[in-house]
C-alpha cells in the first residue's frame, strides 16, 4: 500500500548563506495492507520528516513515495488533496482548526468533504467522541479552548472518522491517560484488521510492541557525510 524507495531530503536555507542541509538519503520502506510499521530512531533522526514527506507536507528531493498508485513525490497538488481526502489519513500531534467551529463539526468534516450525508457523518463523530470520552457538553464548543489531552483526543477522533486505507500516526498515545490510551490502541487494531496500512511514531514502547508488526530505524537513512 505504501512503497518508499530511494527517498532523500535536503533543506536549503536561502537566508542563512544558502546552507544546504542533507537530512535523509536512500530511505526505503514498504507497508502492506493490514500492517502497522513503527518508525524508530533517536530524536532528530528524521521520523517526523519522513512521515511529513509521505503526507506530501515536505517535498522529497528525490525518490519515489507511492501511496496506492499516487507518487506523492511528484504528484500535482490536486492529486495529493484527493489522496488525503480519500486514501491517506494523518493524525498529527497538533490540532489545527478554524476557530469557532464546533468539535462535532471538526470531527465530522473529513466525512462531509467526502460527500457523506450530514446525519451519517455526525453519527460517526458522536460515536468516536463518546468512545474517546470527550464529555458531550463540550461537543458544541470549539476545541481551541480545550486542554492538551482533550485536543489530542479530538484530533484522533477526526483522524479515525473516515476509514482510510492508509494512515500516518504521529505519537497518537502521547499525553493520554490509561483508559483513553486503551481506546486509541483498539482503534488502531480495528483499522489494521479492516486492512489499513499504518505507519506510526510511538515513544510509548508498550503501545508500539502491541500494535506494530515491524520497526524501521530511520537512523539508517541518515546521510553518511552528516553522521
Amino acid at each position: 500500500m505504501i512503497e518508499i524507495s530511494n527517498v532523500s531530503k535536503t533543506f536549503t536555507l536561502h537566508n542563512q548563506g544558502s546552507a544546504v542541509i542533507q537530512v535523509m538519503d536512500g530511505a526505503q520502506l514498504s507497508v502492506a495492507a493490514g500492517e502497522c510499521v513503527a518508525l524508530t530512531g533517536s530524536s532528530g533522526a528524521g521520523k517526523s520528516t519522513l512521515m511529513r514527506m509521505i503526507y506530501g507536507n515536505y517535498l522529497a528531493a528525490s525518490g519515489r513515495i507511492l501511496v496506492g498508485d499516487v507518487d506523492v513525490a511528484t504528484a500535482e497538488p490536486r492529486e495529493i488533496i484527493q489522496l488525503r481526502r480519500e486514501v491517506l489519513g494523518y493524525v498529527s500531534q497538533f490540532l489545527r482548526v478554524v476557530p469557532r467551529v464546533a468539535t462535532l463539526d471538526v470531527v465530522a468534516e473529513p466525512l462531509l468533504s467526502l460527500g457523506v450525508p450530514a446525519e451519517d457523518a455526525e453519527a460517526r463523530a458522536r460515536d468516536l467522541l463518546a468512545q474517546l470520552r470527550i464529555p458531550e457538553r463540550l461537543w458544541s464548543l470549539s476545541p481551541t479552548t480545550f486542554s492538551g489531552g482533550e485536543q489530542q483526543r479530538v484530533n484522533i477522533a477526526r483522524g479515525f472518522a473516515h476509514t482510510y486505507p492508509a494512515m500516518l500516526l504521529d505519537e497518537p498515545t502521547a499525553s493520554l491517560d490509561a483508559q483513553n490510551r486503551e481506546t486509541v490502541l483498539s482503534l488502531i487494531e480495528e483499522a489494521k484488521s479492516r486492512g489499513a496500512a499504518i505507519i506510526g511514531i510511538f515513544h510509548d514502547e508498550a503501545a508500539r510492541d502491541r500494535v506494530c508488526d515491524r520497526e524501521i530505524n530511520v537512523s539508517d537513512f541518515t546521510p553518511k557525510a552528516a553522521a
Binding site: H14, G56, N57, L59
Partner: peptide, 21 residues
C-alpha cells in the same frame, strides 16, 4: 507554487522562507 501546507511548512524559495519565518 504548490500544496498550501507544503509551501508553508517546507518552502523552497528564499523569498517564501523569509515570508514564512
Amino acid at each position: 507554487s504548490g500544496l498550501t501546507d507544503q509551501v508553508l511548512d517546507d518552502p523552497q524559495h528564499g523569498y517564501t522562507q523569509l515570508l514564512v519565518s
